[in-house]
Amino acid sequence: MNVIRRRGWEIPDRLATPEHLVFNRRSLLTGAGAVALMAGPAAAQRVTDLANMPDPTADLYPAKHNDKYALDRPITDEKINSNYNNFYEFNSTKNVAMQAQALPIRPWMVKIDGLVEKPFEIGIDDLIRKMTLEERTYRHRCVEAWSMAIAWSGFPFAKLVELAKPLGSAKYVRMETFNNPKVAPGLRQSWYPWPYIEGLTMAEATNELTFLATGAYGHPIAKQMGAPLRLAVPWKYGFKSIKSIVRFSFVEERPKGMWEKLQPAEYGFWANVNPKVPHPRWSQATEEVIGTGERRPTQLFNGYGDYVADIYKGLDNERLWA
């Protein structure tokens, strides 16, 4: 929904940079532009060139649509979805699209390490071309009680697990987002526990729904939506969908994500959708379909229970729902 609810650890609006300074084309003293300009014209041009490099995998889109994952509602308009995004690395509002264009996504290396047969790094383009891309349409439910439907392109997370060759002792996958304060001003805010971390159990990671998205709406994914590689897990609240991933670590100990570190009473490890379990500050019984104003009843596991409910059997003592 459109109301921004401030948490106790967020700065008040009066301390935020005025919007006209952030979005004014002439105000280059933000993000990568500021750092590059201080370093000189050559550095400024280098940052611009990196940020604007064409996507070498653009020829792979649109990917073939997978009809198995049908929707009960229209796909959210791309203009809405690409202009209503959380990306705290840039700022704490939904208006991150312009700032996110400073993020250079080529070259982009992905590290795979931890409890695997052999740790390695792989360039994002090599990784993408090792996989067979497909398009899937998923519903997504935000913990703030609004929802979207998105056409993702990418590949099953299970394919990355297969590539990684984890050891039998690996119980979780720890994922990490880029950490470059030169291009993302939010990363210079020391009250957040950067870099952004999220985790999945091996059972969650290898579930058929768990998807690594490299594109959306028939083309490479937009930067503000998590380019060049992000997670899409449709049965969980949206803060579990990590963006701009640079590292997958296979570990034995359960990772603690950023939101769990900040507000453990509100944001837990599992974060599965359940209409009967309210957030401490609002109900989760209904959701607003973003862009339409329509309110719908929230569904258990966001309607994907047939695919995922078995993962959580025997975990009655765990806090699965928030």
Rank of each mutant, 00 (worst) to 15 (best):
Asn91Gly: 01
Asn83Ser: 08
Ala102Gly: 06
Ser82Ile: 06
Ala102Glu: 07
Met109Ala: 09
Trp108Ala: 04
Asn85Phe: 15
Asn83Glu: 02
Lys94Val: 13
Glu89Asp: 07
Ser92Met: 01
Tyr84Cys: 05
Ile80Phe: 08
Lys79Ile: 00
Thr93Gly: 10
Ser92Asn: 02
Val96Leu: 10
Ala97Asn: 10
Asn86Ala: 15
Met98Tyr: 10
Lys111Tyr: 11
Glu89Tyr: 00
Ser92Pro: 00
Ala100Cys: 09
Leu103Gln: 06
Ala97Pro: 02
Ile105Thr: 15
Met98Asn: 06
Phe87Glu: 03
Ala97Tyr: 14
Tyr88Val: 03
Tyr88His: 09
Phe90Pro: 00
Leu103Phe: 07
Pro104Arg: 10
Gln101Cys: 03
Lys79Trp: 00
Met109Lys: 13
Phe87Asn: 07
Asn83Phe: 04
Asn85Lys: 12
Val96Pro: 03
Val96Cys: 12
Phe90His: 02
Phe90Tyr: 09
Lys79Tyr: 00
Ala100Asp: 06
Asn86Trp: 15
Lys94Glu: 13
Tyr84Thr: 11
Met98Lys: 09
Ser82Pro: 00
Lys111Arg: 14
Met109Pro: 04
Ala100Gln: 02
Asn86Glu: 13
Ala100Thr: 04
Lys111Asp: 11
Asn95Gln: 10
Gln99His: 03
Phe87Cys: 08
Ile80Asn: 08
Asn91Pro: 01
Ala100Phe: 06
Asn83Ala: 05
Asn85Thr: 14
Val96Met: 12
Lys111Gln: 11
Pro104Asp: 10
